[in-house]
Write a protein that binds this DNA or RNA. Sequence first.
DNA 1: TCGGATAGGTTGCCTGACAACCTATTGCCA
DNA 2: TGGCAATAGGTTGTCAGGCAACCTATCCGA
Lengths: 112, 112
Amino acid sequence: MKASEVRGHLDGLLLSVLESGPLHGYAVITAVQERSNGVLELRKGTIYPALNRLERLGLLDSTWESVGERRRRCYELTDAGRRSLDTERKVWREFTAAIGSVLEPAQPRTAT
Amino acid sequence: MKASEVRGHLDGLLLSVLESGPLHGYAVITAVQERSNGVLELRKGTIYPALNRLERLGLLDSTWESVGERRRRCYELTDAGRRSLDTERKVWREFTAAIGSVLEPAQPRTAT
DNA sequence: TCGGATAGGTTGCCTGACAACCTATTGCCA
DNA sequence: TGGCAATAGGTTGTCAGGCAACCTATCCGA
């Protein structure tokens, strides 16, 4: 499953995997993939712009880290990011509850 | 909440409210709204093109109904539509499970 | 007779995820 | 030693789809 279906909930995913500690972009991709049991395969063209956007919004902080000659950009949750993650989780619950109640209403009887 | 967040799951919603019987477009809107406890407010510009698309895909059948001089277009699930609804529900469960496991991972001591 | 609710649309805009592309370093294998 | 894959970070253009705005028409009550 690609993130195409994730529209609007990507930010929550990113914030969530960063909750337990800083990660660089590439690691964010694998973290999401692992935590979803391989189901969610985010693309670079998806997460890099998203991480930048989240930083601009003040939800993430990034620092360049050097491993030898190679540079990595490490992203970390800010306090605002943590609060936002909290909100994202609430929205997610409301969202699933709403769709769920339409999609799978109280035990639909097949053939009365 | 608008359907903007519903991206990719709108079809399932529409098929779902039509499962218990034919409805015309306007009634679909109110049905979705009622079944989601007023949370999901679909727009005409959202559902009419969607219903047409679903008909083109063979998932719905439409018939014009006359109430006095006024014409209504009634949509009804086809067999393919029913099968598709089944698939949509499976996808929805997988989707929520995947996002959920990233967004709210292994919550220790939570009855869920 | 007029306005609002009902009913069915269409058009164009905007958002956001993605594919395709680019750069550079590191490590491994031939 | 040279070349290639994996790692790492990006940008650009495209495309789908939900939405606002708009249009038409009927029906009913004030």
